[in-house]
Design a protein around this nucleic acid. Structure first.
Lengths: 189, 189
DNA sequence: GTCTATAGGATGATAGAC
DNA sequence: GTCTATCATCCTATAGAC
């Protein structure tokens, strides 16, 4: 286990505050107050407010990228790959619930290389997912609906799972995985 | 009636700016600059920045509420009602695409009665949708998955449709409705 | 590592001239 | 209806004492 230093504590507290109100609504004073110190003291551990945001978002983005890479190279059917992607999202949602708000809503406030890097990871992720769907359609595993509609429908549900998972008492992770796979792949009717 | 034009223009320009960066990242000076006037001039038409936000969000929220009410009272099966809800979201997405960003991401920056009113509309909307799903399960029209998973999966897709609809060239509305109904109700496999 | 003090600039909003 | 000028407050970030 990695020991929790002061810097990590800042990232964690900031994640939680960004979760509620977003990056721009939270000041360095807010973050400091939540840690019972003064804003100036934060700068002994981090370089800027931007750095906090980048830390939060890029860590999770890298998790998604790594997870998707291991799905893509697996020797499985398209449907099995989509099941793996659903499970990946649920695992990350459970482990990084608060960081996901910043990743979803505040990524556009990243700057410079961090912004470019995030956008590339996100686009690559979507492209990989799109390819899986197209392969599934080509192999007659997936119905020939517009691939973009399929991609968007599944990804929207997975990306906003963090909101709903927080709001309503947590369902057991394994039951959640089973039900989401069932609903997203086989439909509700 | 009222001196609507200039005021509506402010709301429209603000919606578009909020769409890109969110309520807190956009200043009154930004809104004014986009209209080629000075920030102080805005206050001849609106009372505060808060008022702009409330106007944007509550107008769309009322559309959703009215639409859901007419679905609820209809004499249809649960699946037919869900189809109507999907069509409602698509229609609103097409007509209010930019306002939906504020509704989804900046509602927590509403204040006082506006905030209370929004939350009540949103909760009532979800409760109506939940009831439709439960009735569908009771009537054996819908598979007995966890109702909350079904509700969340469909609603997530519908609520973030505005992002995807902007990003990728618009598919014809009727094809979009048909495909989304198919994917969300019958699944992809 | 945390503090006080403060720089330097942005912000929402108002007053009053035209 | 729009402008200039301005206020009071907030913001991120730095310097330097302890």
């Amino acid at each position: 286990m990695k020991q929790k230093n002061r810097r990590d504590e800042i990232i964690e507290v900031a994640s939680s505050l960004f979760y509620d109100k977003g990056f721009n609504a939270i000041s360095m004073r807010d973050i400091a107050a939540a840690m019972d110190i003064k804003a100036a003291s934060l700068y002994n551990h981090i370089k800027s407010k931007q750095e906090i945001l980048a830390e939060i978002i890029l860590e999770v983005a890298k998790e998604f990228t790594a997870g998707m890479e291991s799905v893509v190279v697996a020797n499985s059917s398209a449907i099995e790959k989509i099941e793996k992607v659903i499970e990946l999202h649920i695992d990350i949602t459970v482990n990084y619930s608060e960081a996901l708000a910043a990743l979803n809503n505040d990524w556009m406030h990243l700057e410079g290389e961090d912004l470019k890097s995030f956008i590339k990871m996100r686009d690559d992720y979507e492209e990989n997912f799109r390819d899986i769907i197209k392969q599934g359609i080509a192999a007659n595993e997936i119905k020939p609906n517009h691939p973009e509609v399929i991609l968007f429908s599944i990804l929207s549900s997975l990306r906003t799972l963090y909101i709903w998972n927080q709001k309503r008492g947590k369902i057991d992770v394994n039951i959640l995985k089973k039900d989401m796979v069932s609903v997203l792949i086989n439909g509700i009717a």
